[in-house]
């Protein structure tokens, strides 16, 4: 464990909690892409199946349960509890165009052709594009609530911190995982446009609205 990975995990946890609290407190999921949240639940489910097979640490296991629990709670609140506030008309990204090719890619490019490893690879690839429905929805509605931009900021920051974690681990441990690194770079690049708007607008107290 290193400082980049720890702050990355905490940033990820902050994002997940911010979103959960936003929906719970405002009793509304307006502006939130349910499709992205379903993809994140799928990412955690396929990545954390090793909860059943191997124990790494109390931290690792507890964080996995928290992530999975929050992800499903968020999906439940969007599609069941606060379904009336779900903006389905703007959440129209064709996720099948993501899931199917990524499923194929996971079969072709992986570290080991075993079920758990292929599911882990699928999860890594899927996570890198899982935010697209959310970014697409914001581009369609033309704006985002400020709390939603904070959610996206911490979510994007977490993988950027993981990139630093992988540099650290390569330098100090000689560890590197090309699949995770390439997917992590793609994932972080997808946030660059948002990061620019977040820093130039939201941090200056303005509302995030598109086109700029």
């Amino acid at each position: 464990m290193n400082i980049f990975r720890l702050t990355g995990d905490l940033s990820h946890l902050a994002a997940i909690i911010i979103l959960l609290l936003k929906i719970w407190k405002t009793r509304s999921c307006a502006g939130i892409s349910g499709k992205s949240q379903i993809l994140f639940a799928l990412v955690f489910t396929t990545r954390y199946l090793d909860l059943l097979t191997s124990f790494i640490s109390l931290y690792n296991t507890s964080m996995k349960f928290i992530y999975i629990g929050c992800a499903y709670a968020t999906v439940y609140m969007i599609y069941a509890k606060f379904k009336a506030t779900y903006d389905g008309n703007h959440d129209t990204f064709r996720v099948e165009f993501l899931v199917v090719p990524i499923g194929g890619l996971a079969f072709l490019v992986n570290h080991d052709f075993s079920p758990l490893e292929i599911l882990w690879t699928f999860s890594i690839y899927l996570e890198s594009v899982a935010i697209l429905p959310q970014l697409f929805m914001i581009s369609k509605t033309g704006e985002a609530e400020t709390i939603t931009t904070h959610y996206l900021f911490f979510l994007g920051l977490y993988r950027a911190l993981y990139l630093m974690n992988w540099i650290w681990r390569f330098y100090f441990e000689g560890f590197f995982d090309m699949i995770a690194i390439v997917a992590g770079v793609v994932q972080t690049i997808l946030y660059c446009d948002f990061f620019y708007l977040y820093v130039t607008k939201v941090l200056k107290g303005k509302k995030l609205s598109l086109p700029a």
């Binding site: 790494i56 996995k64 000689g174 560890f175």
Partner: peptide
């Protein structure tokens, strides 16, 4: 080095 198949990251 080949990555460990036991993934220790979240």
């Amino acid at each position: 080095s080949a990555p460990p198949l036991r993934h220790d990251e979240l």
